[in-house]
C-alpha cells in the first residue's frame, strides 16, 4: 500500500492507534464521530504508518501510528475533486470552502496537474461529517513533479484566488517536499516540508 502525506485513512476504532501518551478525550470523541486519521509527512516506524488525529478545535492535533491491516479505506486528496466520491450531500448551499473547491475544478481542467483538497475540507468530504464553517480555509495540494516557473505559478495562484471565496492555502508537492504556492511565487528561497523535517531551499534546487 503506497501512502502519501495528506491521505485520509479510515480506521476501525480508536484502539487500533498507537500513541506515545494516552489519547486525550477530544481525540477519542473525534474518532467516535468520524474514525479517520491523516497520514503525516514522516517515515514509517517498524512498519507502522505515521498519522495525525484532528479535533474540532484549531491546535487539536496529536500524532499516532497505525498498522496497515487496520486501515479499511484510503482517500487521497486527488479523489476528492470528484463530487461523486464525496460522502456528504449538500442541498443548494455547501460551505464556502466546498463551493470554492467546485469553482476551482475548471482552472485545473485546463492543466495536467494532479490536485486536491486536504485539511478540514477533505475531512468533511471524505468522512461525511459536517464540521466546516463558512469561515474555514480551503487547503489544497498540487503535485508538481516537473519544474514550474514562478510566472506560471503566479498566473495559477491569481486564477485560484479570483474564483475562491475563502482563504486559500496551497501546497506544491515538489520532488524535495511541500512548498507553499504563495511563498513560491515571490521568493528565491522557500521553506520545504520534508519527511525528515523542514528545510530552506533555493527554488532552482527543488527539481534537481
Amino acid at each position: 500500500m503506497e501512502l502519501s502525506a495528506h491521505d485520509l485513512l479510515k480506521i476501525k476504532a480508536a484502539e487500533d492507534l498507537q500513541t506515545d501518551t494516552p489519547l486525550p478525550d477530544w481525540a477519542i470523541k473525534s474518532l467516535k464521530l468520524a474514525p479517520y486519521v491523516v497520514v503525516r509527512r514522516a517515515d514509517t516506524k517498524n512498519g507502522l504508518i505515521p498519522v495525525g488525529i484532528r479535533g474540532s478545535q484549531r491546535g487539536q492535533r496529536i500524532a499516532a501510528w497505525v498498522q496497515a491491516e487496520n486501515v479499511t479505506e484510503v482517500i487521497t486528496p486527488y479523489r476528492l475533486t470528484n463530487p461523486d466520491c464525496w460522502k456528504v450531500n449538500y442541498d443548494k448551499n455547501p460551505p464556502e470552502a466546498v463551493y470554492s473547491l467546485k469553482q476551482l475544478i475548471s482552472v485545473f481542467e485546463k492543466t495536467a496537474l494532479n490536485w486536491g483538497p486536504t485539511g478540514s475540507t477533505a475531512f468533511e468530504l471524505a468522512s461525511g461529517v459536517k464540521t466546516l464553517k463558512d469561515s474555514s480555509d480551503l487547503d489544497l495540494v498540487i503535485q508538481v513533479p516537473n519544474p514550474l516557473s514562478q510566472k506560471d505559478a503566479q498566473a495559477l495562484l491569481k486564477k485560484l484566488r479570483k474564483l475562491a471565496t475563502v482563504q486559500l492555502d496551497v501546497q506544491l508537492l515538489t520532488p524535495v517536499g511541500g512548498v507553499s504556492l504563495a511563498e513560491f511565487v515571490g521568493a528565491e528561497t522557500v521553506l520545504v516540508k520534508t519527511k525528515s523535517g523542514p528545510l530552506l531551499s533555493k527554488i532552482s534546487e527543488l527539481w534537481i
Binding site: G119, D137, D139, D169, S180, A182
Partner: peptide, 9 residues
Amino acid sequence: HIGVVGSGD
C-alpha cells in the same frame, strides 16, 4: 519580511 500565512507556517 518572510514567510506565509498558512497552516504550519
